[in-house]
Design a protein around this nucleic acid. Sequence first.
DNA 1: ACAAAAATGCAAATCGTTTGCAAGTCTCAT
DNA 2: ATGAGACTTGCAAACGATTTGCATTTTTGT
Lengths: 146, 146
Amino acid sequence: MAAMDIANHLRRHKKSLTRARTEIWRILTQSEKPLSPNEIHRRLNTPKANLATVYRNLRALQDVGLVREIDLREAFKRYEAILAGRHVHHIMCQVCGRIDKIRHCMIQDMANAIQKESGFTLEDHYLECFGICPSCQPHKTEAQGA
Amino acid sequence: MAAMDIANHLRRHKKSLTRARTEIWRILTQSEKPLSPNEIHRRLNTPKANLATVYRNLRALQDVGLVREIDLREAFKRYEAILAGRHVHHIMCQVCGRIDKIRHCMIQDMANAIQKESGFTLEDHYLECFGICPSCQPHKTEAQGA
DNA sequence: ACAAAAATGCAAATCGTTTGCAAGTCTCAT
DNA sequence: ATGAGACTTGCAAACGATTTGCATTTTTGT
Ligand SMILES: [Mn+2]
Ligand SMILES: [Mn+2]
Ligand SMILES: [Zn+2]
Ligand SMILES: [Zn+2]
C-alpha cells in the first residue's frame, strides 16, 4: 500500500480521511519499529489529537488493513504500518530492547504440515522472536556498532 | 518436567510449595488448552485461593520455568504448563475459538537465517496461528466431528 | 517447635484501553 | 459552494486485567 493509497483505502470502507489518521499514518510509516499508542500520541503535531482518538484510529486503520498490531510481551501493544502488503516479524533484544525486523519467514512452508496436523486452515499467524542484539552480545570484540 | 518435579523446581528457586501452587499446577496440567487466570481461579477447589494469588503464582511458576504465557490476541493472557521442556505453539479457530496445539515448528531451522539477517542470537520465540477449524469450515460434508 | 522467609487475603491502586455523549469535521449529492 | 447526514473527536467516566501495600498466615530450615 503506497502512502497515497490511504485515502482510497479508507473511502472504500466508508471511513473519513481525517487529520489524525493522516498523521498517525505518517508517524507509523516513518518509524523503523512498531510504536505504542502513547509513543504515537507523543509524536503528534500540536494541537494533538486525543489519546482516545489515537486508539480509535489505530483500530480503524487495522480494520481497513493498513495497520498491524504487534505483541512483544510488553505492557502494551505496538502498531506498525503494513507496507506493500508485506508482513514482517520482529526480534527484540532481551538486554536493551532494540527491535529489528525479520523478513525471513517460512511459516508458509509449514502451512501444509500445520493443516495436516490440526485440520485447521491457516489464515494468519504471528511470530515474534527474542534474542540478544550484536551490541549486547558478550565475548565479542565489540567492533560492530549499536 | 514430570508432575512431581514441581517441588524440587520450586525449592531450587527458594519458592515454597503451597496448596495454591500445587492446585494451579494440577489445573494447568489437566487442561488441554492454555487457561486464563480467571478460568484457573474458577477451577480452584474451595476454599479458593484469591485471584491475586493466582496471578502471583502464575508469575512464580513462570519464573521457575514451569509455566508459559500465551497471547492469542484476547483481552487476557493464557497460561499453560511446560511439560517435558517441550515448547508448543497454538492455532485458534477464528470462528468458534477452539484452540489446538501445534507441535510442528521449524523456527529452529530458521534460526541461522534469522541470526544472519539480524545479527541477533535467537534465544526465544513465539508463534501463534489463526485459522478455521474443521467443524467451522464451509463447503464441506460436515462429516467430521467438532 | 522456633525464628525467619515466603505466601496469602483483601482492598485499593494502576494502567492500558474503551465508551457515552455532545460538539466538531468530513463526504457527497445538489 | 452548500447543507444534511455520516463519521469523527474531545473529554471524562467507565472498564477490565493485573499489580500492590500491608497485616496475617503458612512454609521452610534448623
Ligand atoms: Mn510470517
Ligand atoms: Mn517453536
Ligand atoms: Zn541489545
Ligand atoms: Zn471453529
